[in-house]
Each structure stands twice: as structure tokens, then as C-alpha cells.
Amino acid sequence: MERSCTAEEVVEMLREEGLVDLPAGVDGDADLFAAGMDSMAVMQLIVIIEERWGVRLGAADATREVLGTPASLAARICEGK
């Protein structure tokens, strides 16, 4: 499992997993909640991040600041546990 992570990789993961409906050409600052991410998708996302990057997000990470954009997610994943 890799620890480093980029916003592009997060976008790719979100597309592969079908968690949100991202428009083409979306960048790292896209608002994932505006794109339809809800609390159920957040739970799936946290599980997937642990599987892919070995980083365990918890209740303290369940905020818009951490989960709101591909870039903020990538930063949190790089930070690790």
C-alpha cells in the first residue's frame, strides 16, 4: 500500500468507485459535497482510503475541511495516521 497520494489519484479513485458524479476535467479543488457526496458515500470513502492507502480516517476526520475536495483528501492521506 502506498502512502503518497495526489489529488489526481483521488479523482481517479472517486471515478473508479463511482462514489460521486464528477464532471469531466474536474480539478483538485472541486467541491465533492456539491458533486453529490453524502454521508453514506463518506463511509464508503473512508473504507476505500484504508484499503488503498492504508490510512485510517476516523470520526475526527469526518469534516468538510478534510473530505471536501480531492486536494484536501490527498493532503490528509499523505499525512497518514
Binding site: S39, R56, L57, G58, A59, A62, T63
Partner: peptide, 19 residues
């Protein structure tokens, strides 16, 4: 909803809840 999602995930990690 977001915070509740976080608590549920913590509950799954603690073994209190199934997936």
C-alpha cells in the same frame, strides 16, 4: 450526517458494528 458517518466508521473499527 458527516459526523455521524465518522462515529459509525469508528464503531465498525471497534468491532461494535458490522460493515
Amino acid at each position: 450526517g458527516l459526523a455521524l458517518a465518522g462515529w459509525i466508521i469508528d464503531g465498525i473499527r471497534a468491532g461494535d458494528l458490522g460493515t
